[in-house]
Amino acid sequence: MTPSTAFLAIALVLLITMAAGLVRVIIGPSPADRMMAAQLLGTSGIAVLLLLAATLGIPALIDVGLIFALLAAVSVAAFTRRRIGQDRS
């Protein structure tokens, strides 16, 4: 017995929480809230990819996860760097 069935079920649960997180993207209220919800989607997506990589036996999915992590980091940095005034660090 492998835990693949349980992993698939948990991946499904994570997909449902991702869908629930989308509510925050819609209601906002501020762009920062929407950004945070997108971050949550990224992290959950990575978890789903890890579970699928183990269950389906596709190790390359972890590289997709790394890309997700990279995009999440870059998007937050870009989001917070866009300023109206002078950048004081």
């Binding site: 501020s30 950004m35 992290t43 972890i62 992590a69 999440a72 937050v76 940095a77 917070t80 300023r83």
Partner: peptide, 29 residues
């Protein structure tokens, strides 16, 4: 991957909080 996500998450949270504290995001005019 986990370590990278953790660093990115903590740094991102700090950046978003800083942006909100300072109120200097382009959406807050």
């Amino acid at each position: 991957l986990w370590v990278l996500v953790m660093i990115a998450g903590a740094t991102g949270a700090h950046l978003i909080a800083k942006r909100a504290v300072r109120g200097d995001g382009e959406d807050i005019l």
